[in-house]
Amino acid sequence: MAEKHAVDISGKGDRIISGHVVNMTISLKDLMEQDEFWILLFILGSVLLNWPVLSLATGGGGPLGHFTIIVYLVAVWLMIILFAYLFDRWTSN
């Protein structure tokens, strides 16, 4: 019987994928309870908010022109807020 690992982004637990028995699922909620996940997010956020990735949004060459950089920064910012919000919501019962 084939094994398949599935990551459940709904945070609801294991899912059965048709034709396969899922032996192990790691939900986002489980990930959030690990310190390493937050360290990874921090590093990723730092990368997204610094050169060279940041340079992709500057210069006015993006789809929104010079407004791209502002939209980009706000979007990354909101993603940071979203992850923290999900952590609060899923772990504060």
Binding site: D35, F42, G45, I80, A84
Partner: peptide
């Protein structure tokens, strides 16, 4: 804002 990601740690 970034540091808040490490807030729980």
């Amino acid at each position: 804002s970034l540091v808040m990601l490490l807030g729980w740690i």
